[in-house]
Amino acid sequence: MDINNLGVAMALLGAASAALLAGIGSAIGVGMSGEAAAGVVTEDPGKFGKVLVLQLLPGTQGIYGLLIAFITLSNIGILGGSSDVSFAQGVMYFFACLPMGLVGLWSARRQAMASVASIGLVAKRPDQFGKAMIFPAMVETYAVLALLVSLLAVSNISKIAI
C-alpha cells in the first residue's frame, strides 16, 4: 500500500478533529450557560436579551472549528472531488487543525464558566451588563489566537511541495 494514499485520510482526521472538539466544547458551554440563563429568566423574564448574549458567547468556538474544517476540506480537494495530498502534507494538515480543536474544546468550557458567573452578575446588577460581557469575552482571545494559527497553517500547507 502506498503510504501517500493515507495523506488525505490524515488531513480529514484533522478537519474532523477541529469540528468535533471545538463543537463539543461549544455544546457543553452553551448548554451550561443556558442553564444559568434559564434560571435568571425564570425569576425575571425581562433579562432574556441580556442573558441570551452571554449564553451564546461559548458558541463561537464551534463556528471557528467548522471554519477550519471547511477550509481544510476545500484545500485537500474533498469538496472538489479529486484529492492529491501526500502523507507528509496530510500529517501537516492534521497538526494544523489541532490548535483549533483542542483550544476550542477547552476555551469553550472555561468561557462558559465565566459566562455563568456573568449571568449571575447581570441577574443582580443588570446595569453592569457591559462589564459582565468583558469577562467571558477575554477567554475568546485565546480561541481567536488558535483560529489564527490553524487558519494560517491550513491555508499555506498546499504551497509546500513535500
Binding site: E35, A38, G39, V40, E43, V116, A123, K124
Partner: peptide, 17 residues
Amino acid sequence: AEQYTYAVARIRAKELS
C-alpha cells in the same frame, strides 16, 4: 458542581428581593 448552575442563577435573581 454543574448540577446547581440553574439553581444558583435563579437564587441570584431571588437575592434581589
